[in-house]
Nucleic acid binder design. Structure first.
Lengths: 149, 149
DNA sequence: TCATAAAAAGATATTTTTATCTTTATATAT
DNA sequence: ATATATAAAGATAAAAATATCTTTTTATGA
């Protein structure tokens, strides 16, 4: 339901959180290889995230992407909204035009509460938290989460 | 979340249900105009639906699309599965690869029950029922449901 | 039998999304 | 200062989804 760009973004931000520091910035290629997604495409997405202040970057030698204090409180919601436009969640699940409480589509009454819970969750789930959960679930190999496709 | 093709299909089938009989078959152009969607594209979609027996068609003069007895028990699920592939509902909402009960994505525990309810609903919601609801909600004009976009 | 109207099938075109490539700007180290 | 590594920006390409156009098949009515 999310675009690939959004999924790449989530994956990359988690990787950054777990693998970069201000003294060890990561290049877009490096990240892309680690999480196995197309490097030039990710580069674009990282630019978007940087513009909106979700991650940080510095150009030049030893430059790259990293997380600073400004970025710590960002949520899953912020990433998705930055890349995809969160409105897609608010629109009718079956894309019926006039869908609302009085004129609900077939899915409306079951989608609405799900959507509300989801958005609440996305807004409270911080990147830090997510990254931590991923660490704990690093079941397979050390390339923890080539899991987002 | 559904493809446009699927939405067009739902819309067209409802229109057929409410406006065609075996003695008054409707051409794809006629349907497309009524529900305001691209005619040639709809034609393709109607072909798919016909192949799978969700609607019926006859070629030649006074031919067109209509519903026969064979079609009456079809559900919303059947339409979507025909055009889109219903598997998209079963995959992880955030497209995380190994998402499951033991390794759930952020949305998993809220998506799973929603999905189950939705699919159950889609499977029990017959076309006839939907069409009837639309009739009742024909709030605006007689072009009842150019509502699905 | 023939002309016609319509679906079916196939081919092509456009748009959107995803992916790649090239150039420019900038920070760092020498 | 200069060379270099890197992000940023811009341009282009490929793939997928959506839309259109053309030809073929088939049922109907004259």
């Amino acid at each position: 339901m999310l675009s690939k760009a959004s999924k790449y973004a989530i994956s990359a931000v988690i990787y950054l959180t777990n693998n970069s520091t201000i003294d060890k910035k990561l290049g877009s290629k490096e990240i892309a290889e680690a999480i196995e997604i197309p490097a030039p495409f990710l580069a674009k997405t990282l630019q978007q995230l940087t513009k909106k202040g979700i991650i940080s970057s510095i150009k030049g030698p030893h430059g790259g992407f990293y997380l600073s204090e400004k970025n710590t409180d960002k949520t899953l919601f912020d990433i998705i909204d930055c890349v995809d436009d969160i409105e897609k969640f608010n629109s009718c699940y079956l894309s019926q035009n006039n869908c609302n409480e009085n004129n609900p589509c077939v899915a409306h009454h079951i989608y609405a509460p799900f959507k509300d819970k989801l958005i609440r969750k996305l807004k409270t789930k911080t990147i830090i938290e997510m990254a931590e959960e991923f660490k704990q679930n690093s079941n397979l190999n050390n390339q923890i989460f080539a899991v987002l496709t």
